[in-house]
């Protein structure tokens, strides 16, 4: 396996926050929009207005439902684009050298003029992050917006991937995982992010920040409830069933409360 760089100076990638992704597909379309008229061949669409429209996208949002026994089911939106793996199998299988991982920043790219469109790299990717463009016959994948992040024709603040810039929920963050103090490294550490599908041994750079635990409705019983003002016991913690509240109790309380104002 000779063509992966031994190591890269930077490990640029994304941190994707599953706790806030609302599944809006904004990143999907902005990615398509940027990339169809920038790096490489356009991202084509077949049968665009027909019975079976199908096109090339570099980023897609899945929606999962997760159910644990005795808890209400939970919905998780799950964006998926290339994770720019350190041990990228898609690179090593490539017969032409078109697929490569950049030594300086770790971005995994396809050099389209070398690509024969054999599809093997897409077979080798466990995440489904590569799509062969049907019109151009070359492999397309997330470029980490390599033509944005260093682009001197863009204002500095815009030198980030299109999907990150557009995400309305701020669920996508871009940074350097080689730097332990970077935004993404810190977020990943704080939120206990783990690499996706480690069984596949790809050492992905991108990290997913897991959904935070949900307030569990089962715990209702343990939580303080309001003490009715007419509860003479003065003990606030009575889960008193149908407390027979009445307007009479209110009057006495109001009188005192208004005095205090």
């Amino acid at each position: 396996m000779t063509t992966l760089p031994q190591s890269t100076h930077k490990k640029l990638g994304l941190a994707i926050d599953l706790d806030i992704c609302v599944g809006c597909h904004a990143c999907v379309i902005n990615c398509k929009e940027w990339n169809t008229s920038n790096y490489g061949a356009p991202l084509s669409d077949q049968d665009a207005y027909g019975a079976e429209p199908v096109g090339t996208f570099l980023n897609r949002i899945h929606t999962f439902e997760v159910k644990a026994a005795d808890k209400p089911a939970q919905t998780v939106h799950f964006p998926k684009s290339c994770l720019h793996c350190d041990d990228a199998p898609c690179v090593t299988v490539c017969p032409t050298g078109a697929s490569y991982k950049r030594a300086d920043d770790g971005i995994v790219l396809v050099n389209e003029s070398d690509c024969i469109g054999c599809g093997l790299c897409a077979w080798a990717c466990p995440y489904g992050a590569r799509e062969l463009d049907a019109a151009e016959g070359v492999m397309k994948k997330c470029t980490l917006c390599v033509d944005r992040i260093y682009n001197e024709n863009l204002p500095e603040i815009d030198r980030e991937p299109a999907c990150v810039r557009t995400c309305p929920a701020n669920a996508r963050h871009f940074g350097d995982y080689a730097d332990p103090d970077s935004n993404v490294s810190r977020m990943a550490a704080e939120r206990g992010a783990v690499p996706l599908f480690p069984e596949q041994g790809t050492s992905p750079v991108n990290r997913y920040l897991p959904p935070r635990p949900k307030a569990d409705i089962q715990t209702d019983g343990d939580i303080d409830i309001l003490a009715p003002f007419l509860d003479t016991s003065g003990n606030g913690n009575t889960a008193s069933g149908t407390s027979s509240t009445s307007a009479k109790g209110l009057l006495g309380w109001l009188d005192k409360a208004l005095e205090a104002i």
Partner: peptide, 13 residues
């Protein structure tokens, strides 16, 4: 694949 197993059984919605 999704890393969501700790939350329960996963299915595509």
């Amino acid at each position: 694949a999704t890393g969501l197993g700790h939350l329960g059984k996963v299915r595509l919605l």
